[in-house]
Amino acid sequence: MHLVLGLIIWAVWFVVLYGGLSVGCALAPPDVALGSLNWLNAVLLILTLGCTALLLYLGACCWQGRASADGDLQRQFIVHVGAAVHLLSAAAVLLVGLPVFALPPCI
């Protein structure tokens, strides 16, 4: 499960990000003139940072779990790869979320 948990979180976050943007634009599009400083971008940004933090935390947990997997090569393998998956997902979240800084949302 640890093998894919991080990526599942990434996927859910991605769907929420895209869906939230679409719904936000459909319901209450912020003024284009505001550029990237508006409520929608702020929400998406908070979401992104929160998700990154969560993934980093889970990755750290996974890494700590190394000790308990002492000796069991299987568990060790899963734990190592799991931690890396979390780390990579965190990086992916952060990078994909990057454009929120620069672009106006609904155009």
Binding site: V32, A33, L95, L98, A102, L103, P104, I107
Partner: peptide, 23 residues
Amino acid sequence: PMASILVLLAFGIPAGHMMLPLP
């Protein structure tokens, strides 16, 4: 790859922004 992506985005995002039909 990460460095290449960042370089690309640094040029690409402003270029894309400039093409939008903003007022």
